[in-house]
Each structure stands twice: as C-alpha cells, then as structure tokens.
Simulated assay, not measured.
Amino acid sequence: MQTGSISSALEGVGAKLLRQVDLGGGLTIAQWRNFANSRLSYRDPGHHTVSLYLDGTVRRMDRGQCGIGSSGALCLLPADGDSTWHVLRDVYFCHIYISQSRFQRLAGEVFDRDSRTLTLPDLSFFSDGFVADIINRAILPNDWSESTNRLLLAQAADLILLEVLRKNGPVRSSNFVLQGGLSPHNLKRITQLIDADLAGDLSLDRLAAETGLSSYHFARMFKGTTGQTPHRFVQERRLAVAYEIVRAGKVSITEVAAACGFSTPAHFAASFKAKFGTSPSAMRA
C-alpha cells in the first residue's frame, strides 16, 4: 500500500519513522516522532488515516478545524482531505493508514449502502477511550516484525475503523463520481455466501450466477466495488479463517486445509506462509 503524501510530508520535514508494518490488503500501521516547530501539510493523500497522539503537542491550522491536541487525542483524516499542522512540542503518534478499497468494504458491510460514495469524516482532537485502549493494548505493545502478530494487528485496526464509523458515521465524498459496481445488496449476498461455504465451490462462475451477471461483468464490478478480484477476495477470507483455526490448535493441518477450501495441505501451507510469513505447523510449534 502506498502511504503517499502523509509519509512524504512527514519525511520532508525531518520526522522520524520509528517503525512501520504493511499488513497487506490496504492496511499499514506506523509510529512516528516529529519535532518541535515543524510545519507540514497533507494534501489529498489517497488513503484514510486514524491518528492517536502518544506524547507532545500539535496545532491544526485549518479554518473550521483549528485546535490544539496532545497525548490521548485522536484524529480522522479522510483520503480526499487537506490539513496543515504545527508541532509545538516534540510529538509521538501512531498512524493507521487504510486504503479506500478496504474502507469501502468495511463501510459497505456496516451501513449496507453503496460505500463507493462514502469517505471518513474529518475530525481533529477528539477522545475515544475504547479506540485508544485498542491502540495502546493491542497494537503498540506487540512486536510488529513478528509474523504471527499480523492478523491480530489487522483485526485491531479494522475494529478501530468500525468503531469510529459506528460513532461518527461516514460522510459522502464530494470528489467521487459514481461508476458501475455491485449494489450493496449483491455485495452482501456474495460475502455471506463466501463466509458460509469456504470449503465449497467459490468459482467465478458460481459467484457471478448468484448475482445474475455474466462472469466477465461480475468480476469487473466486484473489483470496482472492493478493489480486489473475486479470487483474491476469496483467498484472503480463507486464509483469515484458517489462521484462527490453526491458532486454536484443535484440528489437524490437513483438516484445516479441507475446511477452508484449499485443494491440498501443501497448497494451504504455501499460501499460509506467503501471507503470514510462517507455516501452519511452525505457528503451532
């Protein structure tokens, strides 16, 4: 995932990237330090950002969004937003970068609306103890370089996004021109079918038939809505469920492979390692 102008702007003023992990699927987490007297602007970054300030003081200098934030303050920065900042005292903060396609998928599932027209609200320096606790207890203490923590980090980030959307709601993007894609109803039907039948036939032809579309048009519209091909979407769901089963350690690797729709245990093991950086058997060891 490209973290675009936010990372570039921070690097441009000499901010220090303390650590970062790309979790795949349009999700990246980063921890930064920026220094007193830095001034920077973010312009249409192309991805959404959830920010928690851990220490220090910063001022936002935008009409309608001016204010001062410090430790514990949260900010939401939409993909199509602009903002200008002045660091008053050395500031430490955690950023969660969320691609538009990941945002659309989660927002569509929660609000049952065509999420392609939605964006994250632009909010500065608000408090949310639940979101702050997730970052402080589930994200910051973990070793981001450890492959077995990747799914936990991704789930924590998704939970944060869902929580801020539940409390603050998405807003309609003023920059979006609607193009062809799956309706919220059809997208919900397809995602429910996939989750209910991971071991079954989830071929392109079957998924397309559920919507009454040709395979070609379904594939094009599905990717336009979710940002992923149907095959990639199914693979990601199978691996996410398999990860939880493997971690629970109650069934054999062969049974996990079959339950999640992988053709052979070898295919499952190779796909699992490519995604999580470790084999299923090594995770249990």
Rank of each mutant, 00 (worst) to 15 (best):
V256A: 02
I245V: 07
L239I: 12
G224E: 13
V256P: 05
G261K: 07
P230L: 04
E236A: 08
T229Y: 13
A257Q: 08
F262H: 14
R247G: 00
R238F: 08
L239M: 09
P230H: 13
A266F: 02
G227L: 12
R238N: 08
V241P: 01
G224H: 14
T226H: 09
A248Y: 07
V256C: 03
G224Q: 13
R232F: 12
E236W: 04
V246K: 07
S252N: 08
Q235Y: 05
A242K: 01
K250H: 14
I245K: 14
F233A: 02
V246H: 13
R247Y: 05
T225F: 03
T254V: 09
R238L: 02
R247K: 14
E255H: 04
T254M: 14
S252Y: 11
L239T: 04
V251F: 03
Q228R: 14
R232G: 09
G227V: 05
Y243Q: 08
F262D: 01
A257H: 06
R238Y: 07
F268I: 15
L239A: 07
A240I: 09
R247Q: 08
L239Y: 11
Q228C: 01
E244H: 11
T264W: 11
T226A: 13
R237W: 13
C260K: 05
F233M: 09
V234S: 11
V256R: 06
E236I: 10
K250I: 11
P265R: 03
S252D: 11
A257Y: 04
Q228A: 08
A257L: 10
Q235T: 01
K223L: 15
H267T: 09
I253H: 11
I253Y: 09
F262P: 00
Q228Y: 04
S252M: 12
P230D: 10
T264F: 03
V234K: 10
S263K: 12
Q228M: 09
V234A: 06
H231N: 08
A259P: 02
V241K: 00
